[in-house]
Design a binder for these strands. Structure first.
Lengths: 124, 124
DNA sequence: ACATGGTACCTTGCATCACAAAGTACCTGT
DNA sequence: ACAGGTACTTTGTGATGCAAGGTACCATGT
């Protein structure tokens, strides 16, 4: 196990949430999503994105339509289904809960390390 | 794919980070960790925790010693190695970057949905 | 001595999923 | 035709959360 791998693990699941968020804004196709994720510093490659979109579609949270492009092959433009909107809301709640839990853990560690390593004189 | 599964996915990787954090505070054994995680609303079961501790140990980030208990079988008390401290710092940086990225995504969605669905009259 | 219950740690098997790499298909310009 | 760019797909691998079941140690009551 190395740091890169651990970082990948940490991003799992978050990716799904971010992609649903991006699609919730309106019709987009895969390259749009890659651009948006990249600009938010979330690096994703095609081999990750396409299977993920297929899974989300098969779960009933996304739908898509083919749209002709004026400069290349046709594109799949994705939209959220009503079920997908419900799912996104649930994911967002989970995200906030998770971030809160992590914040709790970090905060407790900081409290304890301040107690342990303080250079200030003992109040007594 | 269902919501429970997606929530599990979202927690992957975070767990590792939280466990390292807890161990960084001082010597603890598995039940201590489970209590701490539970109180931070992060539900973990033994079947997840023990293999994870073994992996972290094999990666050189943790060390442990057996300690006799006055009320049951001996316990493995874990501590962070120096390498583990470096790794924890890297994980914490990754966490903050990731949280920032997600915040960026959420914020952009909110901006766009305000623009799209505003009931206010057009400023023009 | 023995049985019982509680605590603590470990192992097996399964399903999921990110990723790399290679492939297929469409369109435009020359 | 052919080359180059864009877009979507497929296959195989490795990692890992989890459920379920197992092993082992200890104290207590009889």
């Amino acid at each position: 196990m190395n740091i890169e791998n651990a970082q990948v693990q940490m991003r799992k699941g978050i990716l799904e949430f971010c992609i649903l968020h991006i699609i919730s804004r309106g019709e987009v196709y895969a390259s749009d999503m890659l651009d948006e994720l990249t600009s938010a510093q979330i690096m994703v490659v095609e081999g990750t994105l396409y299977p993920l979109l297929t899974r989300l579609k098969n779960s009933g949270w996304l739908d898509y339509k083919w749209v002709e492009s004026s400069s290349g092959p046709p594109r799949k433009y994705y939209v959220l289904t009503n079920e997908g909107k419900v799912f996104l809301d649930a994911m967002q709640a989970t995200w906030f809960e998770l971030a809160q839990s992590v914040q709790t853990i970090i905060h407790r560690t900081e409290e304890l390390s301040n107690t342990d390593s303080t250079i200030l004189p003992d109040p007594n």
